[in-house]
Design a protein around this nucleic acid. Structure first.
Lengths: 335, 335
DNA sequence: GCACGTCAGCGTACCGGTTCGCCACGCGGG
DNA sequence: CCCGCGTGGCGAACCGGTACGCTGACGTGC
């Protein structure tokens, strides 16, 4: 592999001139530049990323710290990783995967080894231990997820509250006064899952502001439990004509549950939901919904992180990504 | 951040001695080693990966080239990525994500920038263009997937043929003489998807060797088409008492299709399938099956790649990972 | 005609490690 | 007593880039 010295010799200039051409800094006579470029092409030279990193103290690499225990529903993970890598590339960065079971250790060693210029923490939860070494060292990082206390670290997440309001409004606007709120099981809220809490709180508030009644049905995960719980609710006398769903497992099974009991959407029931786009695709969900916006979230995250790398001392930022309603004709006025 | 020079000064030795301690090469007096280690701890020094890479011409990083293709089942992708990163770490390597839409370009620039010591190509298809620059340059790489012509590149994949034989045998052993082979649509085979072809060929051969009849039902993807196609087949008069499935979309919908028409497993139908473990988990599939073995495949891939990095000139290797049968009581003797 | 400013390009130090030849020291043997 | 050898550690070169100060040539203004 050719080095910058080989190029310099070939072009009859010094290494620093080649470097100047490479980086576009300083003025180089067009003719000289031409010779250098020809030499580069001839030797098919390309800069050694490691050497450049050493000289500039910039690796142009971001680390993404994947939380290990994915007991939860994780089809979205790949989407986030790929989107992250794409967004990073747009800014000239590569992405390194950090998957140690002990996320905190992963963060520590990434910082210590100076392999990366910044870190993206995926799927951040309340009091996430991965934040500790970052907060302590001030290393550039961005959280995806929005804990109460971001400990001075930049953070991005979907605006779940706005999503809840969009969905409630959508039901209210066609005249629904009552809805079943199929939500996560209680322990998830108790565990401090902030997106769940934010969604539920906003849904309740918006509903009451709209004069709407929400009848809450917590729904455990597990296909069979979900299906029977849903079946029961759907068959209940006086059940509302609309369903507001924030529970991936439940919404995935909902088409089948509806089919089981012979109810049609939107004729018999209106349905709106917030879930990941990936889920919608996998299960071909036919519901009007607010979908997570992995590309937008990740794009914002990279933007913040790159800015933070360049300006480590600016005040931390928390950013919510505006959700939008994906209409799929699953809502009709109540009977 | 402390450098090796800081450590040397603190310990009162030269930089090369610190390096010797770090790498365990050469003999260092226990007492000297102790002083160095104390200095390292005191300054909380850790080696700068980039500098070491420059000096050793080894980045200790593997690149994973993700094919951009959307249509496939992405939950499995995350599993592979995480498993890959874990396996790499075991061998002291990190993993860099390469997701350019143009996989060939991604490979070229990875090789040119010398950011990685080797490449893993995920999800390789017949005549995959990503192979070209690798074959041309001899850069260390391993394919996950098994094209007919590996072009001298190491390759690993699940042994789909063996998987097919396991499933056919399992049905034959309890006495089934006929089975419906729910398979992928014809165009997938035509497109040269080698795992599909290998499975189908082995299934047919093993069945005929066992004196079993396979009645083939190609099944398009898309939940609704699948469901109706399956329903039709299940209700068909004289339909076999067993289903052999190699089609992710179909097997995911199969529980519902069976439920629709009121058939029970294994009382009314025996079912065996080959699909990804991730699919089984997400859809809680209750079928005896051969599951893809992402950990084993990826582990083998890393093993081969690391060996290839150390010994670039050995003969290329193709390795098939033995599948195993995951019994879930979905098979009973025919009525 | 001279001082000065600009511009293109050069030389060199430096980033933080590794590697390897060399040296000094202590010891044993002839 | 001297030589040779093994051992522990040192110093310098090197990996492949970047950054910055300097120089020489040329153009301009007075």
């Amino acid at each position: 592999m050719a080095t910058i010295g080989d190029v310099a010799r070939e072009a009859g200039v010094s290494r620093s001139t080649v470097s100047a051409v490479l980086n576009g800094r300083k003025l180089v006579l067009p003719e000289t530049r031409g010779r250098v470029e020809a030499a580069i092409a001839k030797l098919s030279f390309s800069v050694n990323a490691g050497a450049r990193a050493l000289a500039t103290a910039r690796t142009m690499t971001l680390g993404v710290v994947v939380r290990f225990h994915e007991a939860e529903f994780s089809p979205a993970l790949a989407t986030y990783l790929v989107a992250l890598s794409d967004a990073a590339r747009e800014s000239g960065y590569s992405v390194m995967l950090l998957t140690e079971a002990d996320g905190e250790a992963a963060v520590r060693s990434a910082i210590a080894g100076r392999r990366v210029d910044g870190l993206v923490l995926l799927n951040v939860v309340e009091d996430d231990p991965r934040m500790e070494p970052i907060a302590a060292s001030g290393f550039p990082a961005v959280l995806i997820g929005m804990p109460q206390d971001t400990r001075g670290i930049d953070a991005v997440d979907l605006d779940f509250a706005a999503g809840a309001r969009l969905l409630v409004d959508h039901l209210a606007e066609v005249g629904h006064r009552r809805a079943t709120f199929v939500r996560w099981p209680d322990d998830l809220y108790a565990a401090g899952s902030t997106y769940a809490i934010r969604f539920a709180a906003a849904a309740r508030e918006q509903a009451s502001g709209r004069g709407m009644t929400l009848e809450e049905v917590p729904c455990a995960v597990g296909p069979e439990q979900v299906r029977s719980a849903l079946g029961e609710e759907l068959l209940r006398r006086e059940a509302p004509g609309a369903l507001l769903v924030h529970n991936d497992a439940a919404v995935a099974m909902l088409p089948f549950a509806l089919h089981d009991v012979g109810l049609r959407v939107p004729a018999d029931r209106s349905v709106v939901s917030l879930h990941s786009a990936e889920l919608a695709r996998l299960y071909a969900l036919p519901f009007t919904s607010v979908e997570s916006e992995p590309e937008a979230v990740v794009h914002t995250a990279v933007e913040l992180l790159v800015r933070r790398i360049d300006a480590p001392d600016e005040v931390p930022v928390a950013r919510l990504v505006a959700p939008h309603l994906e209409r799929r004709d699953s809502v009709a006025p109540p009977a």
